[in-house]
């Protein structure tokens, strides 16, 4: 379990990192390294160059401005976990944080890394999708913003170009009408979930509207369950469960049938969270 030989460069600026990516097609960015280093050691990937971006200034930090919460790509999970701004204005992220790996992983792993890696079983991509968040990216052609709904393309595949670097994520800040829900089922705390569900909605009288359900661990990307969202907005929990049109594959921990059953259980639990919240 020793990585194949690789070169290492520490980028001092975003521009330098972007240039290095252009010059080295087999380069990978190194931020928290919590997924990348394991794949290197298992020789599942063997990039010729690692470009460390940890030293680039201005890429970490959490800001609440203009009705949004902006979280820099290099923000460590632990910083988000302890952030008052995240707790107050991005409560879904705050709820998801304790489920991400273990404290040692959260000390080092970054939010940007998790979104850029786009593991379909990870918590944060689903949260971003549930919140209808945005991704800021910078590449040789400049900056652009990608909607979460347009970002997740396939298994570990995103809308980021080969020379683009994710610089921040932006989430609509929660207000009095916001409702969020989060639940996952993992065999052991800190494991990737067998199935998980991140949800957001807005209070509408005694009911809900703008329901967004984002499942993880059930497909190649985090998946919206749009038919169930509509049923839930009608207050029909049974209908929402019946309308679940997920088709998860078998994996080591559970068959597709078990995952699908559990997805229904989670829907009931998250629906209860959404309906019970009184800010």
């Amino acid at each position: 379990m020793k990585p194949a030989p690789f070169a290492y460069k520490k980028a001092r600026s975003l521009d330098e990192a972007i240039a290095l990516l252009g010059e080295n097609p087999d380069a990978r960015l190194l931020a928290g390294g919590q997924s990348l280093v394991a794949t290197l050691n298992m020789r599942l990937s063997a990039p010729g160059l690692l470009i460390a971006i940890n030293g680039i200034g201005g890429l970490d930090g959490i800001a609440h401005k203009g009705g949004a919460v902006e979280i820099g790509a290099l923000t460590r999970h632990c910083a988000a976990e302890r952030s008052d701004a995240v707790g107050k204005h991005a409560p879904l992220i705050a709820r998801a944080m304790p489920f991400i790996g273990h404290p040692a992983i959260r000390n080092r792993g970054t939010l940007g890394g998790s979104i850029a890696f786009a593991d379909p079983a990870a918590e944060l991509p689903a949260c971003l999708l549930a919140l209808d968040g945005e991704i800021d990216a910078q590449g040789p052609k400049g900056k652009r913003t990608i909607k979460a709904g347009d970002y997740f393309k396939g298994l570990y595949e995103t809308a980021l170009g080969p020379q683009e670097i994710l610089t921040a994520i932006r989430l609509p800040a929660a207000n009095a009408g916001s409702r969020v829900g989060f639940a996952e089922l993992a065999r052991r705390h800190g494991d990737y979930a067998i199935v998980g569900l991140a949800a957001s909605a807005r209070a509408d009288g005694k009911g809900l509207k703008d329901v967004r359900l984002a499942y993880f661990g059930v497909g190649n990307t985090p998946l919206r369950a749009e038919k169930s969202e509509a049923a839930l907005a009608r207050g029909d929990v049974d209908g929402a469960v019946a309308a679940l049109d997920l088709d998860p594959h078998d994996d080591i921990q559970a068959t597709g049938a078990v995952k699908k059953h559990l997805a229904g259980v989670l829907l009931r639990r998250v629906a209860a969270q959404l309906m019970e919240q009184r800010p």
Binding site: R187, R188, H189, G190, D191, Y192, I252, Q253
Partner: peptide, 11 residues
């Protein structure tokens, strides 16, 4: 160690 589950303290 991700797929072979050993018992962990929390559980």
């Amino acid at each position: 160690m991700a797929d072979y589950l050993v018992p962990m303290a929390v559980e």
